[in-house]
Nucleic acid binder design. Sequence first.
DNA 1: CACGATTAAATCGCACGCAAAGAAATAGCG
DNA 2: CGCTATTTCTTTGCGTGCGATTTAATCGTG
Lengths: 166, 166
Amino acid sequence: MQNTAADKIARDRLAAGALALDRQLCFAVYSAGLAFSRRYKPILNALGLTYPQYLVMLVLWEEDGGSVKDIGERLSLDSATLTPLLKRLEEGGLVTRERDPADERRVRIRLTEAGRALRARAEPVPAMMGCAIGLQSEALERLRADLEHLRRSLSGEEERGGDAPA
Amino acid sequence: MQNTAADKIARDRLAAGALALDRQLCFAVYSAGLAFSRRYKPILNALGLTYPQYLVMLVLWEEDGGSVKDIGERLSLDSATLTPLLKRLEEGGLVTRERDPADERRVRIRLTEAGRALRARAEPVPAMMGCAIGLQSEALERLRADLEHLRRSLSGEEERGGDAPA
DNA sequence: CACGATTAAATCGCACGCAAAGAAATAGCG
DNA sequence: CGCTATTTCTTTGCGTGCGATTTAATCGTG
């Protein structure tokens, strides 16, 4: 595989096409997501949480006592992911898992006292992360909103304002 | 945990704080990333690739013959992630893995004929994904650029007013 | 009430993503 | 040259994500 100059030119022209890594929105999102989780890791480590566990705790701090499915809908994760994660939170003493007496199919997740107490220690986390981001809050909010729109489009939750339903 | 109306109001005020899930940029990125990979899955399945494998192939289609480290730097993934992934691509007959004779620490990754041929089948993928996204291309590009900036900030590649070489 | 359909979790298998430790080769320095 | 430090890749272990399957409970219909 010797590369002649002509070969390289030919490859570069192809690379400039639709498959160019650097123009993939998906890669930008993927890569930013990894960067986020790496940045969060040492901070959340101090709280004894992984990044997905932190997200689950955010849900619970807003709305305690939901079922596994409820939490899954909030985060768009399914029970195959959440069940083991929630068991680890339970082992860590942050939540309890109990079958709902009114519907034994459901498992209700409730914060323990330790789980609620952890909220205070998590309070400064967003500000700490904010320092790591070089964007003004208006730009941040626009970016967040664009991503939410993107997620909705990708999930097929089209919300008509221009997107013709198939 | 009976919820009185007062409790709920108290919780909502807390939820409106910095820890509110729906105002976390990190969650928007995380969630959009998962939505992307779910959307890509059936398409890439037809090519016999996972989503991270697809990203590696994008790199190789642009620049063949790099080392594991080279690919890792392009995608910001380390060799612990890439080694097994590349072995699977090798098993699938898409790449070869050979120690570099000039430096036996390196493993050079090269596309096989099948690996190069797969490019043609991948060509329509971006257009297929484009249809799934409800944004104009200008907005898309702005979003992509914002995310790239975000990734850089998070990775500590700060470039305040241009990339200051360390 | 019976019984098939649906729903909610759990379980299993596989592929990441990464920290930590290990192995092999090279670089650097006296 | 010799020896240590560094670089590159590999391996191991753990925690996600998720498809597929299983189990148990509830729903809907007759």
